[in-house]
Design a protein around this nucleic acid. Structure first.
Lengths: 324, 324
DNA sequence: CTGAAAGCGCTTACAG
DNA sequence: CTGAAAGCGCTTACAG
């Protein structure tokens, strides 16, 4: 493998000059620049990233830690981040925290030890902690890590869009299955839904609302829906809003088992717009999280040299499909 | 950040000695070892990976390139590889080729430039090429890249298991929807299926078999199944074996639209056992690819210093569920 | 068994 | 505008 020295020798310049033409330093005269470029070409020279990283104390890598890459939402996020990173000639290192605080802490340390340009993290819980201070920029996405800046969808506003949709459809008896209420996301989505009614209907209305707490997975959607739908057959809700697509898909399974037709007898909404949402029958009405924008904002935040960013909330859009 | 020099000074030894205790060199006397350990602890010293990488010309990173991390099979694979890598104190760098040869080539070069310990690649097509030679170990997984060693499921044998299952169930009229036959995987799965019949039934039987070529996605499963199921209503197949779960799920959608009951009027099988396979109604009978084993073998192959591995084929297991 | 020193391949003040 | 040189933080022959 050719080194910068070989290039310098061939181009009859110093290594400093070669380094400068590589980093596009404009003070290099055109003659030299061209000689160097030719030498690089001839030797098929490729800079050594480790040497540069050692010198600059910064690798062109973005660390990404997610609870579980197998979750379609995070996979989509990882893909978008990788694309953004590649545009800036950065590479992404992936770590899964498996929703475990201890693992998350370890993964984060491991990544930071590698002196990445920055790390993007989707927290696995609300009380993760980094064990030591660092100057590598950290931004949280979707779920806040510690007190690092957060880039996320405006969950409350998204829920409100869904609530409005259900009201516009004329539903009077609506159940909401939330995510875990000890998570910020779980709370934000629920509150947005709840407050829409408080605000728009000012309490004086014939709409009845009931709330159930679950986890963000298929199983709890199925279990809770089965309970809701079979308990009071006479005054069963005509719409169930779920705090995630996975919950919503669980709800749809329960409805199918109980032979309740969607959307005729029951409307269902989700949240996220994972791929599966449009593969299920009927296709799921949901709130699309602006993943590409989130990824883009996260990478930009890390690349900006400023270490102080504000939180950013991005607006999601409702996608109306067959389930409502 | 403390460096090895600080540790050496505090422990009153040379940096060489510190380096040796870190790398567990047994020639260091216990007294010194303990003094060094104490100093490391006190200073909260963490080795600089870049410096080490520069010196050793090898970073403790495994590169992974997949066509699309959003594909549940690859996400699962990435997760398993990450776990295996972490056990060996390695980190994984993810790249998506987006099923594009040019992007794949670029991603691979980028990864290799970073001097990883090795790279694991799921080829996006059968004719990818690496533009220059390298001494970083490369192993292909699932779909072979160039002529690098391949670790994969024994597709043909897996297909045979599925074929046997269908025969055991008494099906006499079976359709097989293959993946693209210009891919090795597509061919291997189809041939395994086909040959099971040739071998077991020796041609003398009343089983009729028909083949259709598709892509490994939902859409082609749905389209082809619709054609198969509506063309000859009188002698329509009683079983459709699909070359992937995604195809199979497309088939199930088509069947539902045509009001053909699964499994009563039609049995369906897939291949892969992605998460979705057990979330669909009815749950899909399929062949589970041994992903964890594949990941483990791939990482082991890279870590083994030997640059010559053989291909390895791992056996998958049939998972019988409600769709048959 | 331990230490002094060279060197991995870069970048960046500094001098000219 | 260009070059010579120091130094980033390690590892590893080599001498003792």
């Amino acid at each position: 493998m050719a080194t910068i020295k070989d290039v310098a020798k061939l181009a009859k310049v110093s290594v400093g000059t070669v380094s400068k033409v590589i980093s596009q330093d404009p003070t290099v005269k055109t003659v030299l620049r061209e000689r160097v470029a030719a030498a690089i070409e001839e030797l098929k020279y490729r800079p050594n990233h480790m040497a540069r990283a050692l010198r600059m104390n910064r690798l062109d890598v973005i660390g990404l830690v997610v609870p579980d890459i197998t979750n379609p939402f995070f996979a989509q996020l990882a893909k978008c981040i990788e694309i953004e990173a590649a545009e800036r000639h950065h590479t992404v290192t992936l770590a899964n925290s498996h929703d475990d605080e201890e693992t998350e802490r370890r993964q984060l340390s491991t990544l930071i030890d590698r002196a990445p340009r920055g790390v993007i993290i989707v927290a696995s819980s609300d009380n993760g902690k980094l064990e030591y201070s660092t100057d590598v920029p950290i931004v949280s996405v979707d779920r806040r890590f510690q007190n690092y800046p957060l880039i996320s969808t405006n969950h409350a506003e998204g829920s409100a869009q869904l609530a409005k949709h259900l009201i516009d459809l004329g539903h009077k008896n609506i159940a909401y299955i939330s995510g875990p209420l000890n998570t910020r996301v779980g709370r934000a989505r629920k509150i947005g839904f709840e407050e829409y009614f408080a605000r728009e209907l000012e309490g004086v209305s014939d709409v009845s609302l009931s709330f159930y707490e679950g986890h963000f997975d298929y199983q709890s959607g199925e279990d809770i829906a089965r309970r809701i739908l079979s308990e009071y057959p006479d005054k069963r809700p005509t719409a169930i809003a779920a705090a995630s697509d996975q919950i919503a898909i669980g709800v749809m399974r329960a409805a199918r088992d109980l032979e309740i037709a969607i959307p005729d007898q029951l409307s269902v909404t989700g949240f996220d717009d994972i791929n599966l949402a449009s593969l299920v029958v009927p296709r799921l009405t949901t709130l699309r999280q602006p993943i590409a924008e989130i990824a883009s904002a996260a990478v930009a935040a890390i690349m900006a040299e400023s270490l102080v960013f504000e939180d950013v909330e991005l607006r999601g859009d409702i996608v109306k499909r067959g389930s409502t």
